[in-house]
Amino acid sequence: MSESSPLLEVKKISKRFGGVHALEDVDFRLYPGEVVALAGDNGAGKSTLTKIISGVFPPDSGEISFQGVQISLANPQDARARGIETIYQDLALADNLDVGANVFLGREPMTRRFGLPMIDRKRMREEAAKTLDTLDIGLDRLDRPVRALSGGQRQCVAIGRALHWQAQVMIMDEPTAALGVPEQRKVLALIKSLKARGVGIVFISHNLHDIFAASDRIVVLRRGINAGERATVDANPDEIVRMMVG
């Protein structure tokens, strides 16, 4: 893995909130097609790190490079424009719109009918269906509000949308948290299929089983510092837990 160059590299990132050192000199790398699990106890700084990578707030110090170029991210749109997508379970979709409309939200294709410009809903639905099909996400009807979908299906739609818009890096903060077991499996399978397409994935999880099932590498944070990392094949759960609690 070390022979290719990292897709995303974070060097000596620090972030304080008032007196709290949420992150201190944290390093992090992500390679194309790699799945990195970010592990750590509550308050370890996992969400803070992913929020810095996705442009939610800037670090106090340290640098971020994307595809070998140093970047600064002014806001989440900036990150998305570069292909860094974050999948939020609740913030991702407009419940009242259908799958096609959600996949194309903010970038709706237009067509002309009767000489008037109109949103091309048919095309949105067809292209959304195509993308979801390539990910093996089966939804029987794409013309109903996503409110009618289950948590896992919505997660899949959000991931499908990110992929449709050429995400290079996907960040998922506890993607399997509120899901039932079959749906957790579906999301983990989806992570594998994204990986096969060369997308780099960072996912936060408190579930060691998920971490071991889906990741290539495990990065552990403890109270805002790097507590160690392991290739998943070489790691065992007890060791990871020891790193987490120190």
Partner: peptide, 24 residues
């Protein structure tokens, strides 16, 4: 029903945060 503006009216009412995140 047919313009982007109209679509964004629904999006804002459905999930304002998602609309912001979608760059609207």
């Amino acid at each position: 029903s047919q313009s982007r503006f109209g679509q964004y009216v629904y999006a804002v009412g459905g999930n304002r945060a998602a609309a912001v995140r979608a760059g609207i």
